[in-house]
Design a protein around this nucleic acid. Structure first.
Lengths: 188, 188
DNA sequence: CGATTCATGTAACGGGTTACATGATTCG
DNA sequence: CGAATCATGTAACCCGTTACATGAATCG
């Protein structure tokens, strides 16, 4: 579960030092290196909450005659809230949930050969994810420790999967020695 | 986000090959090696859904005169659904959300010394989590690949944090060479 | 004898997503 | 000129959690 507080912390952090409006924030949230996902509608709701709490002030600006932007600026109260949350979340380790892992607990229940096909597909997806992250992280060029974590984690996942596939393949080959095909003459 | 489907897959998997009732399933879900968390009330709701869809049949049993148990058994339709979901989730790589990482992107905004204190607290929590997992994984003794992943991941997180702290400490020491205390005579 | 365990649920609430609504502008 | 981009929102719905309700049995 990603908690409400983490979403607020993330948005406050994006606003810290760079005043911004909902639309721009949503493009940042859509960036591949975002550690958590926050939906568009949700972001607007959270920003409205900030306003209600007095954590931000709003300045309307127009660029030409494009739709007006509502630019959010952190108030001292907002900065305080940000610092408080940041300290608390820096000191805390919340065990992650691993939706990806659920299926791995049950892979013994499917034929080995099929599992290998499926995991190979998964590995391809994991690898292209790593590639995407590397590209996107190049933009930031290692300024943020969080981005480094994301990349390392993605690489870890890729390595683990590769090892798993190798392990299962080895077992499959060992098995194939005493399973010499579907020759009908050997039935009884 | 952990999707509804992952929760269903997990519960179906627990029911596969071992008929069980809500209360027992909830104890399994509370085990530290559970890859995702499913609340008690939610588990009962999902099990009710399974019944509605014809994925399970229910047998009421009483042990002495304890409260009667509603024991769920997968129907062929239930097994089919399980296999379908299992195949799909084995082949898919869904990028994980990292709520833990959000704060790490902003750690430059706090004084270095304080950050080191906070991260040291976090590291302690991460380490005790690893210990807890190792103990709990001993029960299963490496039968499930998912449990292996969980442990490796926890260790990875611990290592990464240790490295981060070392890195920041090194920087702090380098900084302290040209910041020789709060001597008031050096103000102007 | 009071607290915890066994055992199943429901109702209310909160939070987030999907889909919809609006409207000017710029790009192909 | 049609599609995508810029820009902000709302309403309905879905999902999940919290808290509550019930009641026998066992443990300390």
């Amino acid at each position: 579960m990603v908690y409400k507080d983490d979403k607020e912390l993330f948005l406050l952090g994006l606003l810290h030092g760079h005043d911004s409006h909902g639309y721009e924030l949503n493009t940042l949230l859509a960036h591949p290196t975002a550690p958590i996902r926050i939906g568009k509608a949700n972001a607007y709701q959270i920003l409205a909450r900030f306003e209600d709490r007095g954590w931000t002030t709003v300045t309307e600006t127009r660029d030409g005659n494009r739709p007006p932007r509502r630019v959010y600026t952190l108030t001292p109260a907002g900065e305080e809230a940000f610092n408080r949350m940041l300290r608390s979340r820096l000191a805390t380790h919340a065990p992650t949930e691993h939706a990806n892992v659920v299926a791995l607990n049950f892979l013994e229940l499917l034929p080995r050969a099929e599992v290998l096909v499926l995991l190979t597909q998964r590995l391809a997806a994991a690898q292209s994810y790593v590639r995407e992250l590397r590209l996107a992280a190049g933009d930031d060029a290692g300024q943020h420790y969080g981005v480094d974590y994301l990349l390392r984690h993605a690489e870890f996942e890729e390595r683990w999967l590769t090892d798993l596939i190798a392990d299962l393949s080895a077992q499959a080959e060992a098995d194939s020695s005493h399973e010499a095909g579907h020759d009908p003459s050997t039935l009884a």
